[in-house]
Design a protein around this nucleic acid. Structure first.
Lengths: 187, 187
DNA sequence: TGCCAACTAGACCAGTCTGTATAGTCCGCT
DNA sequence: AGCGGACTATACAGACTGGTCTAGTTGGCA
């Protein structure tokens, strides 16, 4: 069956945006529906699993989008340190633009709903894995995967701190230290 | 007026525990009251600011407790790297014990409620500042403060990843890289 | 033309949320 | 004894939650 409308996609996009800024429990289905321009019947037609399914798909969508941006940034710069600094710049710009509402779309949902819903937690974990893989592929060394996890953790933490403090300083501090962290293959 | 009961403290402790594990919006006042053994009238007597005030105080309490543990761990080890590894071990044990429910008590609330409530955001930011100061004081070098921010971000990110993945690997990876990050004063 | 699936539309339900109102209990102080 | 503030206890309000139900509309295909 070919789809006849774009309602489903519109709803997921709206949900992704709202979950990103407000979190899972703070975002009501009514708000998603109102801003997405869809009635309740449509939602439960497209997402029989309800809010939980919607959140899992929204997380996957937001994660895939950011993964694409991450890969393109990494591909544009031969040096991993420069590339990651570009990514930090991107995240910082996003924070500023949204008045510090848009940090990491995964972290918000992971902490808010991951503990109560296994599908949502799994979707978040999957996204983190994809990001880590993208980073690891650009670190040409034996411990690339483990190091990519550290880089990912550092960036995630910096975004969390920056959002909470309403200040980009943590992002800059991390950017300045990336060279040290990635500098020597054998540590 | 001296206090005549410990209801207030009991409620804050219960709230801190529940917010820690479930987040702000996922935790209802009724649950806090039931588990804390207090009626609603008492809550609004002790916390006229309602849930928002309760959360701000719970965050401050949890933050102060962890800050004390952090300082004691740092004081027990002369080498900052060893000391921070001990802290990572503590956080990992806490995650395991709680079946990955208890990550960072601040991050959960900061992402969940910080965007909507300025007092809660400020309370979270204050706690992060206190932790960063505690770390910086044990790094005897000119760039201690900035470096402490990076360390804090890395640890926070690692806890977030570990909780989401239900796997302590990110914590271990960070522990193994702390030496590189802190190794040379001039980077 | 007629049929069927894809999809929309919104009323409706039971439960939960935070917060308020008010009556009552306890206890130290004078 | 009895006043008054500290505190408890609970019923209740009003809004909102996620989710279900049924009726209706649309569009392609036979």
């Amino acid at each position: 069956m070919a789809r006849r409308t774009d309602t489903r996609e519109r709803v997921v996009r709206t949900a992704a945006r709202l979950f990103h800024a407000q979190g899972y429990h703070a975002t009501g289905l009514n708000q998603v529906l109102a801003e997405g321009g869809a009635p309740k019947g449509s939602l439960y037609f497209h997402f029989p699993g309800g809010k939980e399914q919607l959140a899992a798909e929204a997380v996957a969508l937001a994660g895939a989008q950011l993964c694409a941006e991450l890969r393109s940034a990494l591909a544009a710069e031969p040096d991993p340190v420069d590339a990651l600094r570009a990514v930090l710049g991107l995240l910082g710009a996003q924070l500023l633009e949204s008045d510090f509402a848009h940090g990491c779309p995964i972290a918000t949902v992971a902490l808010d709903a991951g503990a109560q819903s296994e599908p949502i937690r799994a979707a978040c974990a999957e996204v983190y894995d994809s990001w880590q893989r993208a980073i690891a592929e650009h670190l040409d060394r034996p411990d690339a995967d483990e190091l990519a996890a550290v880089v990912l953790a550092t960036v995630e933490g910096a975004v969390l701190l920056a959002r909470t403090r309403r200040d980009l300083a943590p992002l800059h501090a991390v950017g300045a230290r990336l060279g040290v962290l990635l500098g020597r293959p054998t540590g």
